[in-house]
Each structure stands twice: as C-alpha cells, then as structure tokens.
Design a protein around this nucleic acid. Structure first.
Lengths: 161, 161
DNA sequence: TTAAATACGTCTATTTTAGTCGTAGATAGA
DNA sequence: TCTATCTACGACTAAAATAGACGTATTTAA
C-alpha cells in the first residue's frame, strides 16, 4: 500500500544527482538514464515538468541540459508531487469535495468528515517535509513513535489476496 | 495523487456505522450496501478480513452479522490499512529493502536513503493516527501548518497530462 | 426445510501507472 | 550550412493495480 509514484522517484533521482554537481554544470537526461537506469522518455518528461514549474532551468541544443534553480529547502515534498502528479485528492469520488455529481450518496455517506480529516493531515505531513530534507536523509524520525522501525521488515512480507 | 483505497473506505464506513449502534447489535453487509451504496461482495470481503484480524466478530446464519470487538482507540490507521491491503511498501522495487533481485541498480541508486526516510516517516504518521480519531473527525490539524487549508480547493483542479 | 446470513475461490472490467514512438525545435561546433 | 546532440511534446501501447461480479458452500434461527 501507499507506494510512491515512479515519476516522483525519477524526480528525486534527478534532483539529487544535480545537487551533487558544481554550480553551473548541466545534467542531461541521458546522463541520468546511464547512471540510474531510469527510462529516458519518462525521466525527460519529469524534468521538463520541473523546468516549467521553475525548479529547474533547461538549456536546449547540443551541450544543453538541466540545472537546479530553486532552493530545495523551500520546496516541500507536497509541492514536488503536485508539480508532477497534480494536486492531492485522497478520495477520488465518493467522499471528497469534488463535483457533487461524482458521488450519488453524498447525503447518506457517513465518512465524509473522516476522509477530509485524513486528507488535511496527510497534506500537512507532506508540506512539512522539504525536498532537501528528504534528499539529505534528514527528517528520519520525529521521535514520537519508535515502533516505526518495523516498517522495513514489514515491507518484505507478502500482500493478501 | 495519494488516493485512499476503496476497500479502506468501506472499512471506515462499516466501522463508523457499527460504532453508532447499541452494544450487542449486529450489522449485516446488506445493511451497509443499502445505506451507503457500497458493493456487496467487496464490502463483505473487507468485513471478513477485519473479522479474521479480530477487529470484528462475525456471526453466521440468519440474523447474523458483524460487531466491533476491539477498542478503535487502540487500532492505528496503519494497522487498519495493513489488515486490508497488506504491509506498507512505499517503493515497490527499485529502492526499497525488498529482495535484491528486485533492483538491478541498487549499487548506483542515489535515493535509497531518501525513500527509506519517507517510508519511515509515513509509517509513523499512519501509526500515530487512530481509527477512532479518524472516525470522530478529531485529529483535524496538528496546528503546525495552517497552509493546509488549501487542500480542499486544490483537489478540484485538473491533473496534468 | 427454508430463508438469510457469512465465507471464499475465481473471474472480468476498469482505471491508473509505466513506458514507447515519432517528430519538431534549439544550438554548438566542424 | 550541415550535423550531432540536446530539449519539447503529442499520441500511442503495455502492464499492473484496483474495483467489482459470479458462483457456490456453509452456518443458523425460525
């Protein structure tokens, strides 16, 4: 459950790669595909996307490439995901605040508020996490909950049918 | 992005419904489908699942049904999702701690740690949220971040292509 | 014995995600 | 001016995950 989107992974890979370079040096998509094995077209799209949103600067033509232009400390993980996947919508239909036509039982539905609550809190969570923090491996734990160390092993278990 | 699973919605709907009843009174799946329009088979599976995990007690035969047996204050939203969808795995393949064969570029991959970080923090988030809190609509905001109020409107916007 | 439930294996349809193809446009350098 | 090497982007196909349906067996109160 709750798998991260591949495009977002490619974005992180690209950003991390570029951040390790001396300022001014450009990175081509080809470079990323060779280093990390990510598919060219998709990675290219993602970088184009980030360039449109002002996170990267693109330079066309031979010897072109991408370069980070925004402070990654000032971009939340929420923002990054929104740039690539569009705005967050925890519940597509039934219980969200989308068009009324999307849900026929809106009057009787008993979990409108729970889902909105969840939506709000998740958004908060993602907004509080900066891209820089993520890439640095900081923000490892808030210290509130130590049980979380079981996650790694849990992810090796099989999913139910 | 980050849509909630339909099965989890049905679980929440069922639990909320049952919680509103006097103790001892059973709830049938038919009842849920009539009230909330959720599909019978799927809802049935979900309830069976929760029964197997000890959250509900099931009674077969005529006049049978389901009943909550566990304190929802002691079940985290993480647990609920895990019961229905299996354990959380933020990254399926490439950068998780699954079988090594799942990722060919594990040596060169530069975001192993970021994804693990994210995984850890997300799990924490879901563990800190109890099912009771969710159903009550409590846990609305940690107060740390007020920008989150834009989420509702954001979810009405179109996704990029 | 019947009606109304849960239990559960298997199948199909739909939607989302992932990845590909083809082509156009920019630019440095020979 | 020509060519190699990039980005930009529309349209398409494939794969996987999600959602839902069908059929049948079992349990149990009346």
């Amino acid at each position: 459950m709750n798998k991260i989107n591949r495009k977002v992974e490619y974005a992180l890979i690209g950003l991390k790669h570029m951040r390790g370079k001396p300022p001014g040096e450009l990175t081509t998509v080809k470079e990323l595909t060779l280093h990390y094995g990510c598919p060219f077209e998709m990675t290219s799209r993602v970088m184009q996307n980030l360039a449109q949103k002002g996170v990267l600067r693109s330079e066309q033509g031979a010897y072109g490439g991408y370069q980070i232009t925004k402070d990654l400390n000032r971009i939340s993980f929420y923002d990054l995901m929104a740039m690539i996947l569009g705005p967050m919508a925890v519940a597509k239909c039934m219980h969200s605040s989308e068009l009324e036509s999307a849900c026929e039982i809106r009057e009787t539905c008993n979990i409108v508020s729970p889902v909105q609550t969840l939506s709000r809190r998740l958004a908060e969570f993602y907004r509080d996490l900066t891209v820089a923090e993520l890439l640095d491996g900081r923000g490892g734990s808030t210290g509130k909950n130590l049980k979380s160390s079981v996650v790694a092993e849990a992810s090796m278990m099989a999913e139910p049918t």
